[in-house]
């Protein structure tokens, strides 16, 4: 009974929450703004009305304790989703996420796992400056015990949210406000997108472009433009920043021999570094040129839109970058 209809990215998340809360009493949503359209947009639409303020809990500004409570509730057998309407605010919650949730299962010898979803939203642009713009996925990817998912499409947003809720481990679910308006086909039923599995968004034989989250759209746009110039880019959307789908990258490299990695986060010790390192370790024999990375510069987000424009990579940069790269190395 799968009717494919189009749904906004944000409403795909909303549907995942509705369905999972309906089928599983231990699922609940807690965090700032779940009753406000300001914060989580329409991702929380109708939840409060349907499930009540016992299971849809708007909170005071208390990230550390509320996240800790999510972790504790998970230890006690619930499947909480803790939302942070902006990733930057989640930094107050580093202790329960990293010291407690990530380590709990291991340091207790596998006795009790922590099936919590920590949902952090990247919310940037609009001159919001350094503390209201950060994309911090790589910090979480660094930590053993955490999984990190970053869907770029409505289909994946729903499927990865459900997978995150069903996963027995702490999963950091990261979306980006810039994705919220995107519409695409989303099945009505409950389904999962496997955590750790990437997807090829566009096949190509000249160069592999690895991306994630919002950058997957920039990658695709760049690839479509380059196709007009007879440059065939293979676009991979990894979908999970941890674990990384190594196989899909290596398989693509076997075909293309060239790798560019895109990330909407910072460069140093980031997602792009990890992809590059994996390829250097496991795919060096397929490389026919150096690995190139297109990321944010190692710089806090500026306010002024003039600087913002220079700060965030877009498909123009990617197109120019890939062309210059191929001119230099593709022979």
């Amino acid at each position: 009974m799968s009717i494919n209809r189009k749904l906004q990215y944000s409403l795909a998340i909303n549907e995942a929450l509705h369905q999972m809360m309906a089928v599983n009493d231990s699922v609940f949503l807690m965090g700032q703004g779940v009753k406000s359209p300001w914060y989580v947009g329409n991702t929380a639409r109708g939840l409060l009305e349907k499930f009540g303020n016992g299971r849809v809990i708007d909170t005071p500004v208390s990230e550390n304790s509320i996240t800790g409570a999510g972790v504790g509730a998970a230890i006690a057998g619930m499947r909480p989703i803790i939302v942070h309407p902006r990733m930057d605010f989640m930094l107050y919650a580093m202790d329960p996420i990293i010291n407690e949730a990530a380590n709990w299962y291991y340091m207790n010898g596998g006795r009790v796992s922590v099936p919590v979803v920590i949902w952090g939203i990247i919310n940037r642009g609009g001159e919001q400056a350094a503390q209201h713009s950060q994309a911090l996925h790589s910090i979480f990817s660094h930590v053993p015990g955490l999984k990190v998912v970053m869907p770029s499409t409505p289909y994946d947003a729903k499927g990865l949210m459900i997978a995150a809720i069903e996963d027995d481990n702490p999963v950091v679910f990261i979306d980006d406000r810039w994705l919220y308006g995107i519409e695409d086909f989303v099945p009505e039923e409950i389904y999962i997108v496997e955590i750790g599995k990437g997807i090829i968004r566009k096949e190509g034989s000249d160069i592999t472009l690895v991306s994630i989250s919002f950058m997957a759209h920039q990658a695709l746009e760049a690839a479509n433009r380059l196709a007009e110039e007879n440059i065939h880019v293979e676009v991979i959307d990894l979908r999970s920043a941890k674990p990384i789908d190594t196989e899909i990258i290596i398989d693509s490299l076997k075909k293309t021999g060239f790798l560019v990695v895109l990330d909407g986060g910072w460069k140093t010790c980031g997602f792009s570094s990890e992809v590059a390192a994996i390829v250097a370790e496991k795919g060096y024999q397929y490389l026919r040129g150096p690995i190139r990375r297109i990321t944010l510069p190692d710089c806090p987000a500026p306010a002024s839109s003039v600087l913002e424009k220079a700060y965030y990579p877009n498909s123009d940069n990617i197109v120019a970058n890939i062309k210059s790269y191929l001119e230099n190395f593709h022979r």
Binding site: L91, E127, A130, Q131, A303, V306
Partner: peptide, 21 residues
């Protein structure tokens, strides 16, 4: 121009900074 409305500073006047966290 790096901070905008939420990052105001003037150390010479004792205004040591403002931040929205």
């Amino acid at each position: 121009g790096r901070g905008g409305s939420m990052h105001l500073i003037d150390p010479g006047k004792g205004i040591m900074g403002a931040a929205p966290i």
